[in-house]
Deep mutational scan, measured.
Amino acid sequence: MDLSALRVEEVQNVINAMQKILECPICLELIKEPVSTKCDHIFCKFCMLKLLNQKKGPSQCPLCKNDITKRSLQESTRFSQLVEELLKIICAFQLDTGLEYANSYNFAKKENNSPEHLKDEVSIIQSMGYRNRAKRLLQSEPENPSLQETSLSVQLSNLGTVRTLRTKQRIQPQKTSVYIELGSDSSEDTVNKATYCSVGDQELLQITPQGTRDEISLDSAKKAACEFSETDVTNTEHHQPSNNDLNTTEKRAAERHPEKYQGSSVSNLHVEPCGTNTHASSLQHENSSLLLTKDRMNVEKAEFCNKSKQPGLARSQHNRWAGSKETCNDRRTPSTEKKVDLNADPLCERKEWNKQKLPCSENPRDTEDVPWITLNSSIQKVNEWFSRSDELLGSDDSHDGESESNAKVADVLDVLNEVDEYSGSSEKIDLLASDPHEALICKSERVHSKSVESNIEDKIFGKTYRKKASLPNLSHVTENLIIGAFVTEPQIIQERPLTNKLKRKRRPTSGL
């Protein structure tokens, strides 16, 4: 017993010596996670971090007073192994002897410093981030199933929210409404489509400006004509009531908005009720001829604005009016007729031209339509002016008669200019590109209106002035400009410049 007691005391002394060697000089306990400095002193990692955080910048070693920084600290694995072995020896000594260790306080702390507990403390002390800490805590505590279930439920809930957000973003663009038309193969669909197009076009005519009305009406008319041609002859009974509906809707729209509806009346003529396609083609032919005449008058307007600064050229074209007008009339009417003589009366030419125009518009179905009313009214106005011209010709002399006839021709041009508003800008460009020769010939008609105004002003003063002067240069210039014009009389060319000069002198006297 005595020997055993001596041996136990010796073992205890050895353990105490080893414990003092492996103590931390700051906390005076076994080193936890030993860290060595540049001066080869060993301290606990937790104690050194606490010391360095007390001051900004480098701190001093507690043993040798040298500078220490966080970067200079290094882990010493050898001392950590020695500490672990010492703890194992102490545990074995207690089991063999059955005696508690003399320094129970220190031993209890040593026992608490088992490797499992050290790992837990290291995970908390090290600044490795929240995710690494959570992982280490889960690994160190596998015995708690409640914690695992809560963490898994949190992760699953987070994943569910992310997935639901993604699915919502994908589903939202798919919620856009999609309209699908289910059509049938019955023959009544074509008639319904035609009526739908006509009503939609009328609404567009009321909303859209004048520049786009003609294009819309032309497209709708083409669509309706194609649909009529596709149907068989057996379905004509269905077409006639639908066309009557079209007429009623167009008349109502014309009564409500007459000014807006006139812009599309000329282009919509071939959508009118037709028994066969031949009647629609004839109407299209007549409309094309009318559009040609209207576009020519538009060309004359532009030329008149350009040549208004040259009064000499405008005056020299006075007698070329009849010849150029004959050529335009021959090209406007498709019928083959002989040219009228140069010395014939211009009023007779106008009456013949009106007689040619009237039969074209005397179809029984055309008179029933609303768009032809505008053309009939313009023709009636022309006839009224010609009836007035006959009365004026009986009273005035030959020279005054010529000037009045020219004035009436200008009035006719004004009437025809009203129809110019109905034609589109695209048709003007096509006419100029296809028929430049006709445009040059028809330019002379509009330029002549300037000389007509001068004659009217001469009649106000009650006299006409003449001068025997020749202007050969002007006649040559005008002959080169206009290709299809005829030779003019030299006496009238000489008379016109004198009248304008005298007018300039006598205007201030009349004002006084």
Score class of each variant (00 low, 15 high):
2 D>C: 06
2 D>S: 10
3 L>Y: 06
3 L>T: 04
3 L>D: 01
3 L>M: 15
3 L>I: 05
3 L>K: 01
5 A>W: 09
6 L>A: 14
6 L>P: 13
7 R>S: 02
7 R>A: 10
7 R>T: 04
7 R>V: 13
7 R>E: 05
8 V>E: 12
8 V>Q: 10
11 V>Q: 01
14 V>Q: 15
14 V>N: 06
15 I>K: 00
16 N>C: 02
17 A>C: 11
18 M>A: 02
18 M>D: 01
19 Q>L: 05
20 K>C: 12
20 K>N: 15
21 I>V: 11
22 L>A: 03
22 L>T: 02
22 L>G: 01
23 E>G: 15
23 E>A: 03
25 P>L: 01
25 P>M: 01
25 P>D: 01
25 P>S: 05
26 I>C: 10
29 E>M: 11
30 L>R: 04
30 L>F: 04
30 L>V: 05
30 L>W: 00
31 I>F: 06
31 I>D: 03
31 I>S: 15
31 I>R: 02
32 K>T: 02
33 E>V: 09
33 E>Q: 00
37 T>S: 09
39 C>L: 00
39 C>E: 00
40 D>I: 02
40 D>V: 10
40 D>Q: 15
40 D>T: 03
41 H>L: 00
41 H>T: 00
42 I>Q: 12
43 F>R: 01
43 F>G: 11
44 C>R: 00
44 C>Y: 15
45 K>F: 15
45 K>N: 11
47 C>V: 01
48 M>I: 07
49 L>S: 13
49 L>T: 14
50 K>R: 05
50 K>L: 14
51 L>P: 01
51 L>T: 13
53 N>P: 04
53 N>I: 13
54 Q>V: 10
54 Q>A: 13
55 K>Q: 13
56 K>G: 14
56 K>R: 12
56 K>C: 02
57 G>L: 07
57 G>W: 15
58 P>A: 06
58 P>W: 15
58 P>I: 00
59 S>G: 08
60 Q>D: 07
63 L>C: 03
63 L>G: 12
64 C>F: 00
65 K>D: 13
66 N>L: 05
66 N>T: 05
68 I>T: 13
68 I>V: 13
68 I>G: 01
72 S>F: 12
72 S>P: 15
72 S>K: 12
72 S>R: 04
72 S>V: 06
73 L>Y: 14
74 Q>L: 01
75 E>D: 15
75 E>M: 12
76 S>I: 01
76 S>C: 02
77 T>L: 09
77 T>D: 02
78 R>H: 14
78 R>V: 14
78 R>C: 13
79 F>D: 15
79 F>E: 02
79 F>Y: 12
79 F>V: 06
80 S>M: 10
80 S>T: 15
81 Q>E: 06
81 Q>P: 02
81 Q>S: 02
83 V>R: 09
83 V>P: 07
83 V>D: 08
85 E>I: 05
85 E>V: 03
89 I>R: 00
89 I>G: 02
89 I>P: 01
90 I>G: 05
90 I>D: 04
91 C>V: 15
91 C>A: 15
92 A>Q: 00
92 A>W: 01
92 A>P: 00
92 A>R: 00
94 Q>T: 02
94 Q>V: 06
94 Q>L: 04
97 T>L: 05
97 T>I: 04
97 T>A: 02
97 T>G: 01
98 G>E: 01
98 G>H: 15
98 G>P: 00
99 L>G: 04
100 E>T: 06
101 Y>A: 06
101 Y>D: 07
101 Y>L: 08
102 A>F: 03
102 A>P: 13
102 A>Y: 03
103 N>P: 07
103 N>G: 08
103 N>I: 09
104 S>M: 01
104 S>L: 04
105 Y>V: 10
105 Y>H: 04
105 Y>Q: 01
106 N>P: 12
107 F>I: 14
107 F>P: 07
107 F>E: 06
107 F>R: 15
107 F>V: 02
108 A>I: 14
108 A>R: 05
110 K>S: 07
110 K>L: 14
111 E>K: 09
112 N>P: 11
112 N>C: 04
114 S>Y: 13
114 S>V: 04
115 P>N: 03
116 E>Y: 05
116 E>M: 03
117 H>T: 11
118 L>A: 13
118 L>P: 05
118 L>Q: 04
120 D>L: 09
120 D>G: 08
120 D>H: 04
120 D>P: 08
121 E>R: 07
121 E>H: 05
123 S>A: 02
123 S>Y: 03
123 S>T: 07
123 S>V: 05
124 I>Y: 04
125 I>C: 08
127 S>H: 05
127 S>C: 15
127 S>I: 01
127 S>W: 15
128 M>L: 07
128 M>D: 07
129 G>V: 11
130 Y>D: 08
130 Y>E: 10
130 Y>G: 07
131 R>S: 12
131 R>M: 13
131 R>N: 10
131 R>W: 13
132 N>M: 14
132 N>L: 03
133 R>F: 00
133 R>S: 11
134 A>D: 12
134 A>M: 03
135 K>A: 08
136 R>L: 14
136 R>M: 13
136 R>T: 03
136 R>G: 11
136 R>P: 12
137 L>W: 09
137 L>G: 09
138 L>A: 11
138 L>W: 14
138 L>E: 13
139 Q>A: 12
139 Q>I: 09
139 Q>H: 09
140 S>T: 05
141 E>W: 03
141 E>S: 09
141 E>P: 11
141 E>T: 06
142 P>C: 14
142 P>G: 08
143 E>R: 08
143 E>C: 03
143 E>L: 10
143 E>P: 04
144 N>Q: 06
145 P>F: 02
145 P>L: 11
145 P>S: 12
145 P>A: 05
146 S>M: 13
146 S>Q: 14
146 S>L: 13
146 S>F: 15
147 L>C: 04
147 L>T: 06
149 E>L: 05
150 T>H: 06
151 S>T: 03
152 L>V: 05
152 L>I: 13
153 S>Q: 11
153 S>D: 07
154 V>E: 08
154 V>D: 11
155 Q>A: 06
156 L>M: 00
157 S>F: 09
157 S>N: 15
157 S>M: 06
158 N>G: 08
158 N>L: 02
159 L>P: 03
159 L>M: 15
160 G>Q: 04
160 G>T: 12
160 G>M: 06
160 G>C: 01
161 T>R: 10
162 V>P: 07
162 V>S: 09
162 V>C: 11
162 V>G: 08
163 R>E: 05
164 T>M: 14
164 T>V: 14
164 T>P: 04
164 T>W: 14
166 R>I: 08
166 R>H: 06
167 T>S: 06
167 T>K: 07
167 T>A: 08
168 K>S: 06
168 K>Q: 12
168 K>W: 04
169 Q>I: 03
169 Q>G: 09
170 R>S: 08
171 I>Y: 15
172 Q>V: 13
172 Q>G: 05
173 P>H: 03
173 P>M: 13
173 P>K: 05
174 Q>V: 12
174 Q>H: 12
175 K>L: 10
176 T>R: 08
176 T>H: 03
176 T>Q: 06
178 V>L: 08
179 Y>C: 10
179 Y>I: 04
179 Y>P: 07
179 Y>F: 09
179 Y>N: 14
181 E>P: 10
182 L>V: 11
183 G>W: 11
183 G>Y: 10
183 G>E: 09
183 G>D: 15
183 G>C: 02
184 S>A: 05
184 S>G: 06
184 S>C: 05
184 S>R: 06
184 S>I: 05
185 D>M: 15
185 D>R: 07
185 D>H: 00
185 D>N: 03
186 S>R: 09
186 S>Y: 14
188 E>T: 12
189 D>V: 09
190 T>K: 10
190 T>E: 06
191 V>C: 13
210 Q>A: 07
268 N>T: 13
302 A>T: 00
